[in-house]
Amino acid sequence: MKLTERLEKLDRRIIFLIVFLAVIVPLLVPLGLKIEVSEPVQIFYDAIDSLLPGSKVLISSDYDPASMPEVYPMNEALAHHLFSKNIRIVAMGLWPQGIPLNQAAMEQAATEHGKEYGKDFINLGYKAGGIVVISALAENIPQTFPTDYAGRPVAEFEIMKGVKNLDNIDLIISLSAGDPGVKEWVMIAQGRYRKKVSGGVTAVSAPAFYPYLNAGQLKGLIGGMKGAAEYEKLVERIGTASRGMDAQSIAHAVIIFFIVVANIFYLTGKRSKK
């Protein structure tokens, strides 16, 4: 049997095994490959870095555990960055399962930076409705979220003093794994109310947001685990995204190799058939 025929009949489980090894080996033996910061991530970082201490940033956690490997590292690094600059966080979510994840990221960063719930950060919880919720926030935040995620009245908390609507928020960040997410925040908060919006998204959805970035509708974009690793580099914090980048790079190299080899055999096979 010719090599091309043997490759055509190759058991796909061998490919799975090679990809598995390409991921697991660099995790066990880190290679320390260099991470270059891309422009969209730098813009995101600069948008936060330009805020004054005491500013308020709204983080909408529009993701779930299924997208944790990509989005949660962004959430962690973001919370550290904001607290290190003494910026206060008003958290909420258009996805119910994002609420505890964002809370965990904020609590971890708060412990490290000595921040206090209710004074330096608050979690308003989840509200169903997507774009309708965003519109309602633009009109009145305490009316849309009368209580925080644990059911305590938001008026009790110091951080909510002077917060009436999105006019009192300096930057909106949506960490999103789909709809409703960054797209809806751009459509309503940026498009209708002209608020500054930044986004952190899964790699699958990242290409769809580049037009928003190029048009200036998004102030920075973090795309997937690679974007999260770049952001971790900017905030000088080695997190799970940075630790996974060696595996990511090797796995990509293996997949590119497979694509090139498969195409060479396909084209040579086609030519020999002619």
Partner: peptide, 23 residues
């Protein structure tokens, strides 16, 4: 092509996430 590349990156990230959890 760019979309496909990003999709592969996303799927590999999920695998990394699970293997990282196991290890």
């Amino acid at each position: 092509g760019a979309s496909f590349g990003y999709t592969i990156m996303a799927r590999v990230s999920l695998l990394i996430g699970r293997l990282f959890f196991l290890l």
